[in-house]
Amino acid sequence: MAIMRVSNLKKSYGNLEVLKNVTFEIEKNDVVAIIGPSGSGKSTMLRSLVYLEQINGGSIQVGTEYLVQDGTYATSQEIKRMTSKMGMVFQHFNLFPHLTVKENLELAPKIVKGEGEAEIRKRSEELLAKVGLSDKAGAYPAKLSGGQKQRVAIARALMMKPEILLFDEPTSALDPELTGEVLQVIKQLAEEHMTMIVVTHEMGFAREVANRVMFMDNGEFIESGEPESFFTNPKTERAKAFLQRV
């Protein structure tokens, strides 16, 4: 069953069309890798799913509700309810620098969801253990490496128990030797059947972890399919050309 349906998504800045007729579905437990050249609209597409970008036309359906239907958005309260089902991990982590790791994790469950302290603490300890950072609970983000920051950001997103987790180039801002620890965490989430959409330039990771690869170029999806067949035998010329370059 599809938990997210996107149809005919359009977005332009002035005369520049950045998204043209983007259509796809996300099934529960999907791990979808979105790849494509820089500037092809991957990030814009992903960000529009959580209302960080507004689209000019098309529909986004979350579960059975419409976040936006034929270019008309739901009320701000409905938008908030739907986007709360999604978590987001950013390229530049966006941790709150004035809060410790633990506070970064616990602030949103506390003030947004009003959950109890014991419940929150239990979950933050579990999640920090899961991303291998239990010893950093009291540290401020400034003291962490890029890879550690991104793992904290993943744990922070998971604190809100999202149904879908979105990653916007989660390793692009990292030194090469630090990407592994972050990809490892995402891989583990995939094994636990977390539904994820990952915009990435890590082809090896896309091939190994995703169950579907979608190739975007110039504001539209050109080709999508199983990673194995996509990477060994791309059908379109543009995908072939892209894969030869990377």
Partner: peptide, 12 residues
């Protein structure tokens, strides 16, 4: 601006 975006996505 990432601070505003992170806050928005977390539901603040």
């Amino acid at each position: 601006k990432g601070q505003y975006e992170a806050a928005q996505v977390l539901g603040f």
